[in-house]
Amino acid sequence: MIARALFDSPDRPASRVARFVNLLVVLLLVSGGSYALLAQSISDWSPVWAYRASFLQGWVTTIWLSVLSLICSLIFGLIAAMARRSSFMPLRSLSVIYVELIRGTPLLVQIYFFFYVVFDKVGLDNRYIAGVLILSLFTGAYIAEMIRAGIESIPASQWESARAIGLSTQQTYRLVIFPQAFRQILPPLAGQLASLVKDSSLLSVLGLSEFTQSALQVNSATYSTLESFLPLAIGYLILTLPISLAAKKLEALFRYEA
């Protein structure tokens, strides 16, 4: 009886009720534990509550920074992935160098380097545009590798079939390769996009008044660290959880056996 209530395996699947109760109990235990741990440390919400507008404004800034970076990073990733597959060798090398340099160095270093060295030279001094560009370059390198792997996972017979019916290369990508590769890419892509939202917190070092920056300011004004950073964690979760859920929905939608 206890085994039926606690265990779930393919040959002895648990009921929906048992699964729901399990989730609920664990959720309660985790939140209870967290409360026991933190209750002592949290003294007073009122100083932080006074800054709620600042939090909200930072949170909204983080949302549109993330959305813009998300779009740009997909574009950068697609360009780099296609450059990597180009028959023109200099382009291919350039793509490899971009991907390896970005993936091999810390985002913080890239933020300082691009903003204070590169963008300074070209006269780009809007911190928000700079932030979006840096974050997109960073995430784009990871997305490029995912797209490349997704394209390479499509068997050669699909290319041959597309050629046999007379599709051009561009049509083959659009009608045959990308739709199939997208399904492969979706799960890691969703994870990367959730990371992007969190990575945007590092842009606070440029003094952008985004979500993390507001928490830092509230913290230095009120000296209530936990009360400043707990809402921060929750605010990011509100953004990243829907991405995971949407990815699961999309995955189910695109599911078919190869």
Binding site: S157, Q158, E160, S161, R163, A164, I165, G166, S168, V176, P179, Q180, R183, F254, Y256, E257, A258
Partner: peptide
Amino acid sequence: LRHFRKRLGVVFQAYNLFPH
């Protein structure tokens, strides 16, 4: 060659249908 292929219908051993 692409125009040439348009005039032919090819059937492969492994079907090579588009799975999506």
